[in-house]
C-alpha cells in the first residue's frame, strides 16, 4: 500500500511541474501586468514604473521569473495580490476554509438525501416510488444551478427570511464561541442545500443502477439459495457491492465541489475561493488567479489519489502494491 502511495506521489511531481508551467504561461500571455494600471497615473512617471518592474523581477528573462515563482511557491509564497495589497496566501486561507466547509456540507447533505433515495429506487425498481425518484432526478438534472440557487435565495432568504442572504458569519459574533460556529452553520445551510439538491443526481442514478445490476448477479442467487432473508441479502451482499463505485467517486466528488462552487458562492455572496476567483478575474488580479488555479489543480490530483486509495480499501480485488 505505502509503495503505491509513494509511487502515486512521485507521479504527481511531473504532473505538478506541467501544471505550473501551463499556469505560468497563461498568466504571462495575458495582456498587461499588475503595474499596467499605474501607467498615466499622475505622479508616477514611466521610469518609476520600469524601476518597480525591475525590482519586482518582471523584467527578468522568463525562465528566471518562472524559477523565482516556483521557489516562492515551494516556500508557501503565492505572491501578493495587487488589488487587496495583501499576500495571496493570507487572502486564500480564510476563504479556502469557507469553501471546504461549504463543500463538506454539500457532500454530507447530498449523501443524506441521495443514498436513501438511491437504495429505495434500486430495491423497488419499476414501482411507483422508483418512478417518482427517477422523476425527481430528471427535474434536478435539467435545472441549472444558477437559476435554482437564485430561486432558493429569493424564496427562503428574501421572502420567508428563514436564512441569511449573504456572508459566512455574523461579524458581531466573537470567533471561536459556540454561537459563532452555530451562525456559520446557519449561513452554510441554504447554499449547501441548494447545491446538494441538484448534486444528488449522480449518486442516486449510480446507486440505483448498481443495485439493479447487483440484484441480478449470480452470487445473489447463491445467497438466496442459502436461505438468507431478503433484508439480509440487501445489507450483506447487495449494498456493499453497490457502494463501490460511489466510494471510488468520493475523491473526484470533493475536487468537483471545491472547483464547482463558483456559482453558489457568488449568488449567496459567500466568501469562498469561488467568489474570490470570479472577482480576481474581473479585476485582473492575476497573482490570485494563478494561485487559485494551482490550488485547485493540486486538489484534483489529491482527489484522484484519494479515490484510488478508497477503492483499494473497499475492494479486495484491487490490492495495490
Amino acid at each position: 500500500m505505502w509503495k503505491f502511495v509513494v509511487r502515486r506521489i512521485l507521479i504527481m511531481i511531473p504532473q505538478l511541474v506541467v501544471l505550473s508551467i501551463l499556469v505560468f504561461i497563461l498568466a504571462k500571455v495575458m495582456p498587461g501586468d499588475a503595474l499596467s494600471g499605474l501607467v498615466e497615473t499622475p505622479g508616477v512617471d514611466s521610469s518609476t514604473i520600469e524601476d518597480m518592474r525591475t525590482t519586482l523581477g518582471i523584467n527578468d528573462p522568463v525562465h528566471v521569473q518562472y524559477l523565482n515563482w516556483i521557489k516562492g511557491l515551494s516556500q508557501g509564497d503565492l505572491g501578493t495580490s495587487y488589488i487587496h495589497q495583501r499576500p495571496v496566501l493570507e487572502l486564500l486561507e480564510a476563504r479556502l476554509w469557507n469553501t471546504v466547509y461549504l463543500s463538506a456540507a454539500i457532500l454530507f447533505l447530498t449523501y443524506l438525501i441521495a443514498i436513501p433515495l438511491g437504495i429505495t429506487a434500486g430495491r423497488f425498481h419499476d414501482s411507483l416510488i422508483d418512478k417518482l425518484i427517477v422523476g425527481y432526478n430528471y427535474i434536478t438534472y435539467a435545472t441549472p444551478l444558477f437559476i435554482f440557487a437564485l430561486l432558493m435565495l429569493f424564496v427562503f432568504g428574501f421572502q420567508l427570511q428563514w436564512f441569511p442572504t449573504g456572508g459566512s458569519a455574523d461579524i458581531n459574533l466573537e470567533p471561536g464561541t459556540f454561537s459563532y460556529y452555530m451562525d456559520k452553520i446557519y449561513h452554510l445551510l441554504l447554499p449547501a442545500l441548494s447545491g446538494a439538491l441538484l448534486a444528488t443526481v449522480g449518486t442516486i442514478q449510480y446507486l440505483r443502477n448498481e443495485i439493479i445490476d447487483t440484484k441480478m448477479k449470480d452470487f445473489i442467487k447463491t445467497a438466496k439459495s442459502k436461505g438468507v432473508p431478503e433484508a439480509k441479502i440487501y445489507s450483506h451482499h447487495i449494498l456493499r457491492n453497490s457502494f463501490l463505485p460511489i466510494a471510488a467517486f468520493l475523491g473526484y466528488e470533493i475536487t468537483g465541489l471545491i472547483t464547482g462552487s463558483i456559482f453558489l458562492e457568488s449568488i449567496f455572496s459567500y466568501p469562498g475561493i469561488g467568489q474570490l476567483f470570479l472577482q480576481s478575474i474581473s479585476q485582473r488580479d492575476f497573482s490570485v488567479v494563478t494561485a487559485l488555479v494551482m490550488v485547485t489543480g493540486v486538489a484534483t490530483l489529491i482527489g484522484t489519489l484519494l479515490s484510488d486509495i478508497i477503492l483499494s480499501l473497499v475492494d479486495p480485488r484491487i490490492r495495490v502494491e
Partner: peptide, 30 residues
C-alpha cells in the same frame, strides 16, 4: 428450506461467489 434441506450449485464459480466477502464467511452464512 433453502440452504438447509435443499441447496444449489451454480454453473460459474466466479460469479456465484460474492467478490467482497471472504469465502469462509460465505460458507458460514447459511
Amino acid at each position: 428450506v433453502r440452504g438447509k434441506e435443499i441447496s444449489m450449485i451454480f454453473q460459474d464459480p466466479l460469479t456465484a461467489l460474492n467478490p467482497l466477502m471472504i469465502v469462509g464467511k460465505q460458507i458460514e452464512e447459511g
